[in-house]
C-alpha cells in the first residue's frame, strides 16, 4: 500500500482508524490542512484526491491508498504562489487564514469543475453549461465555511480566475 502525497509516496498508517487529516498533520507534519470540526461540516480540511476535492476528516488514510493526494503545500510549483493562492492575496480573500487552505483547495477544484461543465444546485438549465456568475461560485464554495467574513474577497478572487480562463 502507498499513498502519493504531493508527489511523494508514503506508507499509510498502521492504525486503520486514523483519518487522512490526522495522518497528514500528525504523521507527515503537513499542517497546512486544517481541522475545523472533524464532523464534515466546515471544509477546512479540504484536500484533493486525484484532483477532486474531498474532506480529509471523513476520509480514512487507508482509503487514499493508491491515490494521489494534493494538499495546500503541494499546489504551487517552486516558491511562487499558485494562481489561486495569489488571487486570494490580491482580493483580500482571507483574514485569520485558518479556513484559507481549505478554501484555496476547494477553489482549485471548483475551477476544474466549471471547465468540465458540472452543474450546481443554482444552475438554472441543468442541460446547459453553468453561467459564470458570483452566485454559482458562492453555491459551489458553500461547503467551506469562513467565520471572519472574507466571503466577498474569496468569491471575487475565484470569479476573476474563472473569467480569466474562459
Amino acid at each position: 500500500m502507498a499513498i502519493t502525497v504531493n508527489g511523494t509516496k508514503v506508507d499509510p498508517p498502521g492504525d486503520m482508524r486514523v483519518s487522512l487529516l490526522d495522518f497528514l498533520r500528525d504523521d507527515l507534519h503537513l499542517t497546512g490542512t486544517k481541522i475545523g470540526c472533524n464532523q464534515g461540516a466546515c471544509g477546512a480540511c479540504t484536500v484533493l484526491i486525484d484532483g477532486e476535492r474531498v474532506l480529509s476528516c471523513l476520509t480514512l488514510a487507508a482509503q487514499a491508498d493508491g491515490r494521489e493526494v494534493t494538499t495546500i503545500e503541494g499546489l504551487a510549483e517552486g516558491d511562487a504562489l499558485h494562481a489561486v493562492q495569489a488571487a486570494f492575496v490580491d482580493h483580500d480573500g482571507l483574514q485569520c487564514g485558518y479556513c484559507t487552505p481549505g478554501q484555496v483547495c476547494a477553489a482549485t477544484a471548483l475551477l476544474n469543475e466549471l471547465r468540465t461543465g458540472s452543474p450546481s444546485y443554482v444552475t438554472g438549465d441543468l442541460t446547459a453549461a453553468a453561467p459564470l456568475t458570483a452566485e454559482e461560485i458562492r453555491e459551489r464554495l458553500s461547503g467551506n465555511l469562513c467565520r471572519c467574513g472574507a466571503h466577498n474577497g474569496i468569491v471575487s478572487a475565484v470569479l476573476a480566475l474563472a473569467e480569466a480562463r474562459t
Partner: peptide, 21 residues
C-alpha cells in the same frame, strides 16, 4: 496594504497552535 502575512496563510505555512511540531 494587503495583510502582511497573507502569503504564509494561503500556502499553509502559517503555524497555528495545533500545528507546532
Amino acid at each position: 496594504s494587503a495583510l502582511s502575512d497573507a502569503p504564509e496563510k494561503v500556502t499553509g505555512a502559517a503555524r497555528f497552535a495545533a500545528d507546532v511540531a
